[in-house]
Nucleic acid binder design. Sequence first.
DNA 1: TTCCAAAACAAACAGTTGTTTGGTATGATG
DNA 2: CATCATACCAAACAACTGTTTGTTTTGGAA
Lengths: 199, 199
Amino acid sequence: MAAVRSAARLAVASRADNRLPLILDAAARFFAEKGFGFTSMRDIAGMAGMLPGSLYYHFASKEELLVAVYAEGVRRIKAAVAPALAKAGDPWARLENVCAAHLEGLLEDSDYGQVVIRVRPDDAPEVAARLVALRDEYERTFAQAIQALPLPSRTDRRALKLMLLGALNWSQTWYRSGKDSPQTLARRFVRLLRDPLDA
Amino acid sequence: MAAVRSAARLAVASRADNRLPLILDAAARFFAEKGFGFTSMRDIAGMAGMLPGSLYYHFASKEELLVAVYAEGVRRIKAAVAPALAKAGDPWARLENVCAAHLEGLLEDSDYGQVVIRVRPDDAPEVAARLVALRDEYERTFAQAIQALPLPSRTDRRALKLMLLGALNWSQTWYRSGKDSPQTLARRFVRLLRDPLDA
DNA sequence: TTCCAAAACAAACAGTTGTTTGGTATGATG
DNA sequence: CATCATACCAAACAACTGTTTGTTTTGGAA
């Protein structure tokens, strides 16, 4: 397939693939704002300044384009969370920072991150499995922050992960930029879990 | 508009509106399973055993049909939660039952409940405001169960509501029927918030 | 300067979308 | 029995969908 770039053939980087990032950006923006189903290839092509058919030089289908955006989204969220996760110190503080980074990724920062949370894998049946795999990949990253917490042995950490991650992801529904910052929200949520333990 | 039923004119109930529930059921099923955007009026009409154009006798548009399903969904979830909310006793136990009822509504019970959680108001721009109002209406019901909790005065109850409701609603993403029941999940989630307080 | 593959255009394809319009069976009402 | 609104059918509408095909431009390599 042509989408496999010849860039492997070293350096030069010519003009080749020049507009591919443009396509991805446009797709990410539309997928994030209107969802997968309500976005047309013409929307994307228009914003990228090209014709609809031209997209098929880079991607075999609309769903494959979604996969590319999705993958980039996961990459970015992971990259945003990684530093917070790496830093040593209080595991609770680390979790709070991880949550804050996670929230920034899906609320403010980039369209790519929003796509990962907003678009349901079943919306693209042909590639659904790959999308789920990408999500899971990230969730394992997030789970590390939970594992590190000093909790009573009876605590159900899996449930904790599902609860916290669900709370964070769902915030996309009610969050309005300009009010509480992602940092503030992360602090509030983590405190609800932590404070009672300190007493 | 014809959709305003003449039923107000007392009792008889003739054959009029006979297939309207059928339409709503079909729409609810499709909206719940494929989402609003991926459902066509032909899908719905087909399942209801009629022609696409006929739907417009009952509803002025696809979006208006969504409003009707949405409203019914909120009605049902509220009805499912109401008994749990009314019962006297331990506020924590009550919250757990409320959560269980909520989960059943959007995971197992009815397509209507699933629609309320699954379909984003912005998917139907023309009626988005009305859909949001319907959601809010229910959330106020849910908030009552939170208000009744015996919590340290410093606790942010609004954040608690957002966290718990988000965790519950997001479960639609990962829940697979047959494994943990809604009741079990509700217990696990509520315990994560309560148990630390008891110590 | 010639050549070639990359990258895009231009135009169409067949199918689907929400919706409209005009006609028609039906069952209750006078 | 005649009437009439209700509830539906039948058929089409224009617009839009993802995608394909053949052709053209382009920039770097030989």
